[in-house]
Design a protein around this nucleic acid. Structure first.
Lengths: 202, 202
DNA sequence: AATTGACAATCTGGGTCCATCTTGTCAAAT
DNA sequence: ATTTGACAAGATGGACCCAGATTGTCAATT
């Protein structure tokens, strides 16, 4: 069964690896790639530096795995939020954007400006765009299924356009908001405005 | 009549000064503050360096005047667009945001990241926020007058909240869009979605 | 499996020196 | 008014060196 699952690094290691990647993500987000040392990550994860090398051969491999893990993790929880049919549409959208964007608001330090640069250097730029596209498709799918797009029919706007607009709003809020709470508040307002045509009555 | 118009530097010089400031803005936007020399600005404006010093005593004074002029100019044209009653609401909003934000999309170079830093260093941060607030108030005013806020009554959203949402969208589009045209397109979609409750029928 | 201690090779940041660029000012010329 | 030419003081950037940090690997230990 499925010996070539297209995932290059998917031998389901342990939960330890996942924990290391979570810790590494936080450190990388605060200090960027250059100013983060393996020792720093190891200490933050309560592991020896060599223990870290036991899982990741080089710093770049750690970084790559960290980003990959973060994107998969964010997309997974975002998708879960978006597809939670037990919640009202607005709440699902807010949770989706919070998981995809809001989760990182206020976590990036001033030294972390090299992350995107290094990211594209390592060829992760395409992967990032792929995940971004997946998230956007998930949002668009929800908008279509909810009947929102139908409600906007008179405007001629597509699900994709509504998604892009909401996505741009989230990106703007990411820069404007100082805290995750402020972001959630802002995206909540945007979502409420967008969903208004479905009938905001209680 | 009004001998103290609160404007600190408003002796209505000539159009020459205004032209110099427009040129200076373009250079500053491309190369930032540090990497822009007085000679560079002078040459770009087809003036001698000393001719520039004849209008602005120091580089910092030039920078300060440039930003002040840009903010005033942007706010003026944004306000004109917003209050042009000969245009439909959507077009007015698009023109307003294009004048305030879109005008600068794609113009800022990689070396220009020190602009905001220097800006706040010189105490222009407060002034910038003041202009930002004025623009937002102008937008909110238009939204209220158009009846859009009333149309959103069932959601409980205020004019301020709708304005903030649109503003966040514009900020996001500023980072996402590579060109001014793409920005206008994006903000156009956002505005259309927002104005939908007023009846998008043709 | 993970840890400690240790190691050479390499990278980084600070410091100095020095040539060049830039600023701000001046006088003379148009 | 604006320009050209010139100037000293100061800022900037590149070259270079060096101490210390960091990386990646090893062996011995638990």
């Amino acid at each position: 069964m499925g010996t070539e699952l297209k995932s290059p690094e998917k031998p389901p290691d342990d939960a330890r690896r996942s924990r290391l990647l979570d810790v590494a993500l936080n450190v990388f987000l605060r200090y960027g790639f250059r100013k983060t040392s393996m020792d720093q990550v190891a200490r933050a994860a309560d592991v020896s530096r060599q223990g870290l090398y036991l899982h990741f051969a080089t710093k770049e491999e750690l970084f790559q795995a960290t980003l990959q893990h973060a994107m998969e993790s964010s997309l997974r929880s975002a998708s879960e939020g978006l597809s939670d049919v037990s919640l009202p549409l607005e709440e699902r959208l807010v949770r989706g954007f919070d998981a995809w964007v809001g989760r990182y608001v206020g976590m990036v330090g001033a030294d972390a400006k090299d992350l995107t640069e290094v990211l594209s250097t390592m060829g992760l730029g395409e992967e990032a765009m792929r995940f971004e596209a997946l998230f956007q498709e998930a949002v668009a799918k929800v908008l279509r299924a909810s009947g929102l797009v139908a409600a906007y029919k008179s405007t001629g706007l597509t699900a994709r356009q509504l998604t892009d607009t909401l996505y741009a709003t989230a990106r703007g809020l990411k820069y404007i908001s100082g805290t995750r709470e402020a972001f959630v508040q802002g995206i909540g307002v945007a979502v409420r405005a967008l969903c208004m045509p479905l009938g905001a009555s209680r």
